[in-house]
C-alpha cells in the first residue's frame, strides 16, 4: 500500500500545510478523499515538498516572467489588469473550473487565460500543452497552494457539466473496456503492474511527472489514462475533458491545491 499520513503530521511546504486527506461529504462516492501525494514514494514526495528541488518550478518561473510581459495589440500584460498575482490570483485555481456567463460554459484555468489573451490583450491564444500555458497555469496555481479545492456547481449550468463528467467517469472505454472508476474508485491503493493506483485526483495540476520528465496538464494525464486502456482519447480542451475536470474537482473537494505537484 501507499505511504499513509498521520493526521497530526500532514506535509507542509514553507509552513503551508497540505491537506492530503479530507473527509468525504455525504453523497460522495468515496469514504475518504486522498491526494495522489499519499500514493507516491518518500523520494517523490520530498521533491514536491522542497521548492528548490521541485523541477516544476522551472515552469513556474516561466509563468512569473510572462505575467508581466506585454503582449498583443492592446499593449498590456496580465499584470496591467491583475496587479500582484499573489493577491489577485490567490484562490483562483482552487475554484476552477468555474462557470463563465459570457461564454455560456465552464472555464478551466486554460480557458480563462486564453480568453484574457484574445479578448483583453489582443494576443494569440496559447496552445493547451505549450510551455507558456503550462508555465502560467503553474504560476497561477501556486498562488492557491494549500487552499482547499472548492468548486461551485450551482452557478449557471455547472450541474449539467457535472452530470456529463460523472457519466464519462463511469463509462468504459477502449479495447480494455475500463472506466476511470475501475482504477481510481474501486482499486486505489492497489498496484496495477508497477503502478500504485491513486484516486486520480486533480489537485496537483499542472503536475511535474517524472515519467514525462516534464510538466503536464490534467488533460494530458486524462489522455495518458485513455491511451493505456487503448481508447481513442478526447482532445485536450474538449467538452468531454472539461466536464471530467469539473467532476474531478468536485470529487477532490477539501484537498489542498498542490500545484506544482510532483508525481511519478
Amino acid at each position: 500500500g501507499g505511504a499513509s499520513a498521520d493526521e497530526t503530521n500532514l506535509p507542509s511546504i514553507d509552513g503551508v500545510t497540505l491537506q492530503t486527506r479530507a473527509e468525504a461529504p455525504e453523497g460522495h462516492p468515496l469514504t475518504e478523499i486522498i491526494s495522489g501525494f499519499e500514493f507516491r514514494t518518500k523520494e517523490t514526495q520530498a521533491l514536491e515538498l522542497d521548492d528548490f528541488n521541485n523541477p516544476g518550478f522551472l515552469m513556474v518561473e516561466l509563468g512569473e516572467e510572462a505575467w508581466s510581459t506585454v503582449e498583443g495589440t492592446a499593449g498590456k500584460s496580465c499584470e496591467s489588469c491583475h496587479g500582484d498575482a499573489s493577491e489577485s490570483m490567490r484562490g483562483v485555481r482552487a475554484a476552477m473550473p468555474k462557470w463563465n456567463e459570457a461564454a455560456g460554459r465552464p472555464f478551466t484555468l486554460e480557458n480563462q487565460i486564453n480568453a484574457c489573451r484574445t479578448e483583453q490583450m489582443g494576443a494569440d491564444a496559447w496552445k493547451w500543452e505549450s510551455d507558456a500555458m503550462l508555465g502560467m497555469t503553474a504560476y497561477i496555481g501556486l498562488q492557491s497552494r494549500g487552499m482547499p479545492v472548492k468548486v461551485d456547481m450551482e452557478s449557471g449550468e455547472m450541474r449539467t457539466w457535472w452530470e456529463k463528467g460523472k457519466e464519462l467517469y463511469y463509462t468504459r472505454f477502449g479495447q480494455l473496456d475500463m472506466a476511470c472508476a475501475n482504477c481510481h474508485e474501486s482499486n486505489y491503493g492497489n498496484y496495477i503492474r508497477a503502478d500504485l493506483l491513486s484516486q486520480g485526483q486533480s489537485n496537483g495540476f499542472p503536475t511535474y511527472r517524472l515519467k514525462w520528465q516534464k510538466m503536464g496538464s490534467l488533460h494530458r494525464r486524462f489522455k495518458g489514462c485513455m491511451d493505456n486502456i487503448r481508447a481513442k482519447a478526447f482532445k485536450r480542451g474538449s467538452d468531454e475533458f472539461v466536464a471530467l475536470e469539473a467532476y474531478l474537482a468536485w470529487r477532490g473537494q477539501g484537498l489542498s491545491v498542490e500545484t506544482p505537484a510532483v508525481r511519478n
Binding site: 477502449g174 479495447q175 485513455m226 481513442k232
Partner: peptide, 21 residues
C-alpha cells in the same frame, strides 16, 4: 474490471490501431 480478451463488439472508442481486433 477484467477485460474480455477475445471480443470486439460492444466496445467504446477503441483506439484506431486496435479497432476490430
Amino acid at each position: 474490471v477484467m477485460p474480455a480478451f477475445h471480443r470486439e463488439a460492444g466496445l467504446n472508442r477503441v483506439m484506431d490501431s486496435f479497432a476490430g481486433k
